[in-house]
């Protein structure tokens, strides 16, 4: 076997765990006879050990801080979402302020006219919305800036904004049931501007949090 080429080549293959059984046998036989190659082989193994034994080096103490300071600014929506999750109460306050300055009050002031979410089969007399007897409203009903009289049935939630529920037979008067009709859901009555705001903020906060949820756990 040629020492400087073949034997040394096999040594490196050995160090890379690349030797076939046959090559390993040939290298072993050669090493038994050749002192020069034995020496070469030991030097290689020792070189690897010396390199592996050099001490570990650790990054300077402020390394991470410097990296984080140099990163480009984070996308705003992520920053806000994380902040919202960490500060739910402040979030409500922030949203309130945003609404105050983004024309929510003006929309409140302008929309003084009667608004009804479902027109079908409902009677409207002046500012009063009537669910006639025998009529069933499927789903939620919203009445804004007007009163509501329920003679029929509402199969859902009722939201009354800035209006009253008219009770025909106040003589028997016992709350909701006093009305001839029936509400198969919650009745929410919102009379004041702040309650109305709060009512919308809850919706908005819910939608922000569910949006955040989708973004943070989705694919």
């Amino acid at each position: 076997m040629n020492c400087s080429h073949e034997a040394v080549e096999l040594m490196h293959k050995y160090l890379d765990h690349d030797l076939t059984k046959e090559e390993e046998g040939r290298l072993r036989v050669h090493l038994e006879d050749c002192e020069a190659c034995q020496k070469h082989f030991h030097e290689l193994e020792r070189t690897i050990k010396l390199v592996q034994n050099t001490e570990q080096i650790t990054a300077p103490a402020d390394f991470k801080k410097s990296v984080m300071q140099k990163l480009p600014a984070e996308k705003k929506n992520v920053k806000y979402l994380r902040w919202f999750k960490a500060h739910p109460v402040l979030t409500s306050a922030v949203i309130f302020v945003i609404f105050m300055f983004s024309g929510m009050f003006s929309s409140w002031n302008q929309s003084g006219e009667l608004v009804v979410s479902k027109q079908e089969n409902l009677e409207i007399q002046g500012d009063t919305v009537i669910v006639p007897e025998g009529v069933t409203v499927e789903g939620d009903l919203l009445v804004k800036n007007g009163d509501l009289r329920i003679d029929g049935t509402v199969d859902g939630d009722v939201r009354l904004v800035n209006g009253d529920l008219i009770k025909d037979d106040t003589i028997e008067g016992s709350g909701l049931m006093a009305s001839a009709g029936e509400v198969n859901g919650d009745l929410q009555q919102v009379d004041q501007v702040f309650e109305w705001l709060w009512f919308h903020m809850k919706d908005l906060i819910k939608s922000i949090f569910s949006l955040g949820h989708i973004q943070l756990t989705g694919t």
Binding site: Q56, T58, A59, P60, F63, K64, V67, L71, E74, K75
Partner: peptide
């Protein structure tokens, strides 16, 4: 998704290896 605070953890984990 753009979360920088998660990247901070990655830096913590790999900083010594990469610096070395």
């Amino acid at each position: 998704r753009g979360d920088q605070s998660a990247f901070e953890d990655i830096v913590s984990f790999y900083q010594n290896k990469i610096y070395q």
